[in-house]
Amino acid sequence: RHRTTFTSLQLEELEKVFQKTHYPDVYVREQLALRTELTEARVQVWFQNRRAKWRK
Rank of each mutant, 00 (worst) to 15 (best):
His2Ser: 11
Arg3Phe: 14
Arg3Thr: 15
Thr4Met: 15
Phe6Ala: 04
Thr7Cys: 04
Thr7Arg: 03
Thr7His: 02
Thr7Ile: 01
Ser8Asn: 07
Leu9Ile: 08
Leu9Met: 10
Gln10Glu: 05
Gln10Asp: 06
Glu12Asp: 11
Glu12Thr: 08
Glu12Asn: 11
Glu12Gly: 06
Glu13Lys: 03
Glu13Ser: 05
Leu14Cys: 04
Leu14Gly: 01
Glu15His: 01
Glu15Gly: 01
Glu15Val: 03
Glu15Ala: 02
Lys16Gln: 07
Lys16Ile: 07
Lys16Phe: 05
Val17Arg: 02
Val17Lys: 03
Phe18Leu: 04
Phe18Tyr: 07
Gln19Asp: 09
Gln19Phe: 08
Gln19Leu: 08
Lys20Trp: 07
Thr21Lys: 02
Thr21Ser: 05
His22Gly: 04
His22Ser: 07
Tyr23Arg: 02
Pro24Glu: 02
Asp25Thr: 07
Asp25Trp: 03
Asp25Gln: 02
Val26Gln: 15
Val26Ser: 13
Tyr27Gly: 14
Tyr27Thr: 14
Tyr27Trp: 05
Tyr27Arg: 15
Val28Lys: 06
Val28Cys: 13
Val28Gln: 14
Val28Pro: 01
Arg29Tyr: 12
Glu30Phe: 05
Gln31Cys: 09
Leu32Gln: 04
Leu32Asn: 02
Ala33Tyr: 06
Ala33Ser: 10
Leu34Asn: 14
Leu34Gln: 13
Leu34Arg: 14
Arg35Thr: 09
Arg35His: 08
Thr36Arg: 02
Thr36Asn: 06
Thr36Pro: 00
Glu37Pro: 02
Glu37Tyr: 06
Glu37Leu: 06
Glu37Gly: 14
Glu37Lys: 14
Glu37Met: 09
Leu38Ile: 08
Leu38Tyr: 00
Thr39Glu: 08
Thr39His: 03
Glu40Cys: 07
Ala41His: 09
Ala41Phe: 05
Ala41Val: 06
Val43Ser: 01
Gln44Thr: 12
Gln44Cys: 10
Val45Pro: 05
Trp46Pro: 05
Gln48Pro: 02
Gln48Ile: 14
Gln48Leu: 07
Asn49Gln: 15
Asn49Lys: 05
Asn49Cys: 08
Arg51Val: 06
Ala52Glu: 14
Ala52His: 08
Ala52Asn: 12
Lys53Cys: 07
Lys53Thr: 12
Lys53Trp: 07
Trp54Tyr: 11
Arg55Ala: 14
Lys56Trp: 01
